[in-house]
């Protein structure tokens, strides 16, 4: 039996800054996970991934990350994605301490 498809977002690192970015439904890249387009259909997700991967002059290392729907938008399903979305946890610096 095929595994049930769980919600995903397209994510990568920005080519110039290295920042973690998410693909929005307007085809822009956002630093904010809440702005990401949530993909609930596997075929859609694969197409969005292929499209995003072609944007080689904007981003590096494109992949689909699992999310769970939350009240204010998608939330990371795995702790690794939580750190990517927020920044280092040893003390507040990086994304979490800067205006998005």
């Amino acid at each position: 039996m095929a595994a049930i498809f769980t919600p995903k977002v397209v994510t990568a690192n920005a080519l110039l800054e290295g920042d973690v970015v998410y693909l929005t439904d307007a085809d822009t890249w956002s630093r904010d996970l809440e702005q990401a387009e949530v993909l609930t259909d596997e075929a859609d997700a694969q197409i969005r991934l292929i499209e995003a991967s072609a944007r080689v002059d904007e981003v590096v290392g494109v992949y689909l990350a699992e999310v769970t729907p939350g009240s204010t938008g998608p939330e990371p399903a795995h702790f690794r994605e939580a750190f990517r979305a927020t920044g280092p946890s040893n003390y507040s610096h990086g994304k979490q301490s800067e205006a998005l």
Binding site: N13, E17, G18, D19, V20, V56, V60, G61, R80, F83, R84, G87, P88, G94, K95
Partner: peptide, 20 residues
């Protein structure tokens, strides 16, 4: 491309990590 660039940047100590 990134595939072409990656070995070149690594030769010069430049990684792409989790946040940067």
């Amino acid at each position: 491309t990134e595939d072409e660039f990656k070995p070149l940047r690594l030769m010069n100590g430049l990684y792409l990590q989790l946040h940067a």
